[in-house]
Amino acid sequence: MECPVCKEPMLVIEYEGIELDLCDACHGVWLDEGELELLLGDHEMTHGFLTAGNPAAAKKEESRPCPICDAVMGKAVTGGKTPVVYDYCPHEHGLWFDRGELLSILEQGSSDGAAAAVVQWLRHVFPDSSTPQTKQETLNP
């Protein structure tokens, strides 16, 4: 599978039974269909949150092909303080997150234990990742 942004072959990372595809070059993350559900487990990350943002925010990002079927992926915008624009395959192959976007989504979209564990998990996997929110947190201790 090729990274939809930089066309490099993507690595597959598995940690504690969860799997994601990672671009070595741009640190974008691909989640196969159903993988986000696995990642969240029983946690209620509402569909509402994932699409709550203003779609206008997605306009400036350029479109990308689905790494599986090459169809142009759609854009969705999350709710929350810092809305995240992510890509979804129209044929439901999966979701694409640019660097740090996935962590940002999970941190904003959840407050309960299950998702916190997921955030922990992602921090484990990407200790160097920095999202806008984590930056803020480090600025205002």
Binding site: P9, M10, L11, V12, I13, E14, Y15, H124, V125, P127
Partner: peptide, 28 residues
């Protein structure tokens, strides 16, 4: 024809056959 690397930190890296670089850094 993927290649599998098990890192000591618990991460499992699966490399596609197109991955041409001789070395790979564990993300964790």
């Amino acid at each position: 024809k993927f290649r599998f690397i098990n890192c000591d930190c618990g991460i499992r890296i699966k490399l596609p056959p197109e991955y041409a670089k001789p070395k790979v850094k564990c993300v964790r």
